[in-house]
Amino acid sequence: MTEPDLATELRHEFAEQLAAEGKLPAQWRDAVEAVPRHECTPAFYVPNDAPGITTYVPITPKLVGDEAWLRRVYSDETLITQFDGRDIDWSDPQPISGASPTSSSTLPSLVVQMLDALDGDDESTVTEYGTGTGYSTALMCHHFGPEKITSVETDSGVADRARAALDRCGYAPRLITGNGLAGADRTEPADRTIATMGVRGIPWAWVRETAPGGLVVATLRGWLRSLGLVRLVVEDGQHATGQFIAAEPGFMMARQQEAPTNLGMLPADDDGKTRETAHGPGVLRMPDSGFVAQLAMPNARTFDMAGDDGRMRTFVLDAANESFAVLSEDGDGWSVREGGPVSLWGEVEQSLALWYAAGAPATTEFGVSVEPDRQLIWLENAAEGPSWRLPIAPGS
């Protein structure tokens, strides 16, 4: 069996596997079976399984052989192709530790879930933000036709490689290199808009360049965690509303919205006022309560550090307003030491109280409203229910 024949066989086996697991919508099966993902991922990294600091190991045909490489390509796995915004020397790739992935071919089951959420038809035009390796772009080209697809990528090197990959796949969509948060400079609005990177708030340009009645599918996330996948209906050019349709998809943050490298000043041991709290740092790490905590303090970040007494403390810092909260074990409970203009942990406590009062609903029970100068996540009722503001995306 030749390598191309093996790739075709593995694609069909992969599609069958995803379908059997309920992860492949029927209308997208043909695209998954047809699009050669290996053309978009000729070399990539995957995390190893060793304990400790995550180490990423390279996978190329030369290093592992054609068959092992192809079997890894045609699996439901995210394949990483860039770290820290820097290109990789594929002539001699080495294991990588202590780095942050910045481009990848995302988990195919998540990709097709998002594509299915577009609910497009044969006439739909689509704008994609985050071309990446070009795999999702290729799936849409096969499904809708390449003349219907516009894709925007912020990284010029990534964009060049995606263009070459799409050419090898036989597709020639409209490709743009630039800041996708500012839109795609469309002369006519698209019927559908999709983003394959996380954003802190929906850029208004995405709404502005989507036709009334059209859909926007994107991932909202914060500096603490991913919030979830949202689908919005563009109503009249001034409003878009919708809801979360899935929790915690693992897309990388848009580079223009990554957290500042500087966490801000650490509080001294005698800064702030200490009080008891019913909630320890565990609420930040649980999926549903962590979602609510992220809404409560959108500009905060957190880390653990041992104090002079050897006990671990959880620091919550907001560099935007220099507020802080430090959580410490206090007997069988917790205490919090707070300072700055905003009671960070108080915001978390209040939001959790509202959430519990509503019956601790899942992420998919939350709605989203987007206007040019205001974005809200809300429960029960957009006008009167509990709500939280999202940051307005810069550059849009």
Rank of each mutant, 00 (worst) to 15 (best):
E153L: 08
T154F: 12
T154S: 12
T154N: 09
D155Q: 12
A159N: 14
D160A: 13
A162W: 04
A164G: 12
A164S: 15
A164V: 13
A164T: 14
A165P: 06
A165W: 03
A165L: 10
L166N: 02
L166Y: 03
D167Y: 06
D167I: 05
D167P: 01
A172S: 14
A172C: 02
I176T: 08
T177Q: 08
G178W: 05
N179A: 11
G180T: 11
L181N: 03
A182R: 10
G183M: 06
G183P: 02
G183D: 05
G183Y: 00
A184Q: 07
D185A: 15
D185Q: 13
R186P: 05
R186S: 10
E188K: 10
P189C: 06
A190R: 03
D191N: 07
D191K: 04
T193W: 01
T193P: 00
T193Q: 08
I194F: 02
T196P: 06
G198M: 06
G198N: 05
V199C: 04
V199L: 01
R200W: 00
R200P: 03
P203Y: 00
P203W: 00
W204L: 08
W204Y: 13
A205N: 10
A205Y: 01
W206E: 02
W206A: 00
R208T: 11
R208I: 09
A211D: 08
A211L: 09
A211V: 14
G214M: 05
L215R: 08
V217F: 02
T219K: 05
G222C: 10
W223G: 04
L224I: 10
L224F: 08
S226L: 15
L227A: 06
L227E: 05
G228K: 03
G228Y: 00
G228I: 04
G228P: 04
L229N: 02
L229Y: 00
R231E: 08
L232Y: 03
L232M: 11
V233M: 13
V233D: 14
V234G: 01
E235L: 12
E235T: 15
E235P: 08
H239E: 13
